[in-house]
Computed example of a mutant assay.
Amino acid sequence: MTQLDHDIGRAIADVTRNGRHLSTVIDELFTAYRPDADTAADIRSRIVEAVRTMPEWLRQRIRAAYGDKATRILEALRSEAPVFIRVNTLKTTDRDALRALRDAGAEPTELEHCLVVARPFGLYRRQSFRDGWFEQQDISSQRVALSMDLAPGMRVVDACAGNGGKTLHMAALMGNRGRIIALDPYAEKLSTLRSRAARAGVSIVEPRAITSTKTVKRLAETADRVLVDVPCSGTGVLRRNPDIPWHLTDASIGELVSLQRDILRRSANCAKPGGLVVYASCSILPEEGPDQIRTFLDQSPFTLESEWASMPDNAPHSGDGFYCAVLRRNP
């Protein structure tokens, strides 16, 4: 065994036993060894493949939820995710975006609402990206904003805006007309959102830090649409972030479910009577999806209008695992 082999094993243990982040341990190895491109690819592949072997407690949860389908789901979660691109229609057209991607050698394929490009592709190094023409966003994630029945001039509350991926998509669907209140407790995420909005040519977003429960209470019954994209286990996006399960425990899933329930309850009150609340979770666990919504509907004056779920599989254009429910507040 070489020293590199030993250090790769230690890096794997740092993720699976000590909870360190995958990107961090890989960067440390690259810094220490300064490998050529082929060696770097081999190092990354060996570590990622080992980390994809998720903890047994999570495997058991998935088997309990999906029975005979679990084996196929677990296999799909170990695969590479496609690269999906959302065209920013505030800055360009689909035709010009396709031409720019082809000129860059990206080999784009047109799907119903987005593009998928072949790997590898340095999107973030392209001038067209810096000019705000594109966002890298999974096809299932894009489907969330498309489920909101948005129109120009609406007032929208994004209750868990984060870095703003869905916020910017909503702004584009609204033609940059109306207002989006983007809430998040983390100032650094809202700072990133501001930068991304400027690049995307979005001016209708108002980032607002959640400093207390009053931040949300002041928005009671003011919004035509409310997006509640809750913090979750991330089990639907393991293809992109295979180290996620190593930062979770079986007990922490219950803690997340309680947090989601509280966020949904508080945020849903921002909707006007007759307005829509869209709940989204990038989890494949039922307790973070349909079970959460059934509990909410039993206790709240809302009606379920529609719901959908996506599951990663080995199809060429398979999106991430998501659950989404569209709820209407009773008049």
Rank of each mutant, 00 (worst) to 15 (best):
D103T: 13
A104V: 09
G105W: 06
G105Y: 08
G105M: 08
A106I: 10
A106C: 11
A106Y: 15
E107I: 01
E107N: 08
E107P: 00
E107L: 08
E107H: 09
P108M: 00
T109K: 12
T109G: 02
T109Q: 12
E110R: 15
E110F: 01
E110A: 15
L111C: 07
L111S: 04
E112Q: 04
H113P: 00
H113L: 05
H113R: 08
C114H: 15
C114D: 15
C114T: 10
L115G: 09
L115S: 10
L115A: 09
L115I: 11
L115V: 11
V116L: 06
V117G: 08
V117A: 06
V117P: 00
A118Y: 11
R119F: 12
R119K: 13
R119L: 10
P120K: 00
F121I: 00
G122L: 14
G122F: 07
L123W: 04
L123F: 00
Y124W: 15
R125T: 09
R126D: 14
Q127C: 05
Q127E: 13
Q127G: 05
Q127K: 14
S128K: 01
D131K: 02
D131L: 07
G132L: 06
G132E: 09
G132A: 02
W133C: 02
W133D: 02
F134Y: 07
F134W: 04
E135A: 12
E135V: 03
E135H: 08
Q136N: 05
Q136H: 09
Q136R: 15
Q137L: 09
Q137K: 01
D138A: 09
S140I: 11
S140W: 00
S141D: 08
Q142W: 14
Q142G: 12
R143K: 05
R143S: 15
V144N: 14
A145Y: 11
L146W: 13
L146H: 13
M148I: 04
M148E: 07
